[in-house]
Amino acid sequence: MPGEVLDEVLSRYQELPTRSHATILVVSIKGIGMEDFVEAMLQMDTSYSTQIRTTTSLPLPKQTDSSEPRPRIDYIVFIVDLSNQQSFKMIEEAVKLVDVDYFLGRCCFILSKAKQEHLHSVDLNEVTDLVEAYDSTMFCGDLTNEEERMNLVEKVLHHAEIACGFCNDVNSLLLSTTRQSFTFEEIMTT
């Protein structure tokens, strides 16, 4: 039934945005550096308040009435560790359950350990194909390395800020037009 499927899909229009507050959802399995990443993000000084929600799979569990309602999720970060097949499998399943509106510049994929080819157990091309299929930004860096982690955090927060609309005159779709493509496309010339 279409109604049931809609319930599971993460959508941007079910809640109202929170004023001067950014809610970032991090989708990542445990054990690949997600916790350090979240900690680093919270250490950054921003003019707006942030809340980071973490999950190890989608769909998000149904909310019980007792807990406070889930705020609107402004930005989604998918973390894939190229040395962990489980993380890629989970992300593959998770992206199907996210509303298309998030893929217009309001989500990103982090590829951890992209440079350490000897550790790869996931095909890099498969991952890049997925990212291109969903037309999203991709960041590479080693989440276990502090410097690279801070680098990634800065980039993600910059994108998240734009996705929340805190930057005047810059829209996330505008930002995505400046993105590089990582797969080779045949250029048709007529």
Binding site: L25, E35, V38, E39, L42, S49, T50, Q51, I52, R53, T54, T55, T56, S57, L60, P61
Partner: peptide, 17 residues
């Protein structure tokens, strides 16, 4: 108690599990 649980700015969506 990992820091991620205590920090009010983080929220584990799967805390029940």
């Amino acid at each position: 108690d990992s820091d991620i649980e205590n920090n009010p700015k983080t929220f584990n969506e799967e805390w029940k599990k």
